[in-house]
Each structure stands twice: as structure tokens, then as C-alpha cells.
Design a protein around this nucleic acid. Structure first.
Lengths: 123, 123
DNA sequence: TCAACAATTAAATAATTGTTTAATCAAAAC
DNA sequence: GTTTTGATTAAACAATTATTTAATTGTTGA
């Protein structure tokens, strides 16, 4: 990250290890972007829901108990992060998770995290 | 989430599926909390770093190119989320990732997400 | 074409949160 | 004990972001 030496030199030279393992800006940005999306409870609930079924906006709003503009806002963010996709059928827009490695991985991760942070739930 | 019927009834009855799979408040809160921590690029970079070495605050600050108060702030958040632990040695406070299932899982997840969102990096 | 419904967008507000600067706390060296 | 160094805390500020309300777009059916 920085070419200069570190302020402190504690025996074990971590510097090489650090340089090797530290990810670049793009990698940091990509990962934190994905995380940020699911860091919002409303968005996480919506994404989790869409992992298990395809639904229209009004139904999603009813299920998560939010206004449709608010839901629409979150859907837009999730979509531009490539986590969900949409399809129009008549007046309704149906949303579901994207069929990508990213979305699948996030889903799997969420389920696992859920059972770790909340072991009492059936999981 | 809501006991009432959904506004729209599209053939496939998702309602049962939904009720079964939808996580409770506690589960949502736990997962989104963990995600939110790593949704901030600075915090992600620090956590990632601490997955590979134990370091003191000044060195962390130098590596990620931030002020020590800012780093300290993020360390406090990561610590109270149970992702990292600290140890004092003389004047220095050393931080490293916690030896828990949560921390290990997040580390693994980050590495994998990194290679998905940023395939060109060696990974 | 007009009315009704679903969804999105815009503007405004409220709330959260990351960073800075200055001050304080803790431990070691002199 | 005083000074120096590392780390944390507090207050202030800046910036981002989620939600609400109102207006608008798109699609269907009368």
C-alpha cells in the first residue's frame, strides 16, 4: 500500500506477507460493494426473500412491510449490483436473484452466516 | 412476516415457501450486522489485513494510510462485532482476527468474493 | 380515449456514519 | 515524577443514505 517502512518493527517481518496478501483497490471496492448491499437489513431481507421465490413489487412490499417506493429503491440498488434481475409481465415487474456465481455465493454465505450468528433458529 | 394475504395472487403459491424460508428478525439483524462491518472499504481492508498478520495500531494505520484515531474507531467496531481480538504488549495494542467460526467464515468468504468480483487479480 | 393499477422517479427530510482535530488515558523510559 | 510514545475518546463536521410524500411513467381493460 505504502512503499515506506512501517513505524514499528516487531521481530516477525510481516511486511512481505502483507504485501503479498493485501488486495488491490479494485478487489476491495468490489467486495465491500457487495457487502454493503447486504449490510442493510431491509435489503438483506429482500434479497433473502428473492433467493426463494420470484415476486412482484407490491407483494415484496407487503411481505417485508415497507412502502413500494422504498422497496423499489432497494431493488434498484440490488439490481445494479448484479444480485437480482427483473422481468415484466403485464403491469407487474417480477424480481428474482440473478443466476450468477456471485448471487449463489452470497445466498449460500447468508444461510451459513445466519446459522452461525443465530444457532437457535432451525437453520 | 405479515399474517394477511398478499395483494397479488399469482398461481404458484409462494406463500408457504416464503413463510418457511424467511428468517426471523434476530437472524436478519445478526447477518446484516456482520455484512455492514465489511461493507465499509476501510474496515474491510483492515479486517483482511488482520486475517494475515497481527499488528499494532500505528502499523495498521501506516499500511492502510489512515490516521490512528480513524483506525482505532474501526478496530473498535470490528472488535465489538466479534471479528477481531486485541492484546496489549507494553505500549502497543496488537490486533488480529478472532479465532472463531464467524471470523474464519468471513475471511474465506472475502477471499472467494474477491476472486469472483475481480477475476484478473491472481486470487 | 379514459380510468385503474403497478412501478418508478423526484424532491425533501431524517438519520446514520466516517473522518478530522484536539484532548485524554495508559505504559514505559529517562 | 516527568516526559515520551502509543492508543483511545470526544466533539464537530462532512458526507452518504434510507424513507416519506407527491408526481410521473407504463400497461391493461373498460
Amino acid at each position: 500500500m505504502n512503499e515506506k517502512k512501517l513505524p514499528h518493527d516487531h521481530g516477525h517481518n510481516n511486511e512481505e506477507k502483507i504485501r503479498k496478501h493485501l488486495p488491490g483497490e479494485a478487489e476491495i471496492a468490489g467486495v465491500s460493494e457487495a457487502m454493503k448491499q447486504l449490510g442493510d437489513p431491509s435489503r438483506l431481507r429482500i434479497f433473502w426473500l428473492l433467493c426463494h421465490c420470484e415476486e412482484c413489487v407490491l407483494n415484496i412490499a407487503a411481505i417485508v412491510n415497507m412502502s413500494s417506493p422504498a422497496v423499489s429503491h432497494h431493488l434498484r440498488l440490488l439490481k445494479s449490483s448484479g444480485m437480482i434481475v427483473s422481468r415484466r409481465d403485464g403491469k407487474e415487474m417480477y424480481y428474482r436473484t440473478a443466476d450468477t456465481e456471485l448471487a449463489q455465493m452470497l445466498h449460500h454465505m447468508i444461510e451459513k452466516l445466519g446459522s452461525i450468528t443465530c444457532p437457535e433458529e432451525d437453520a
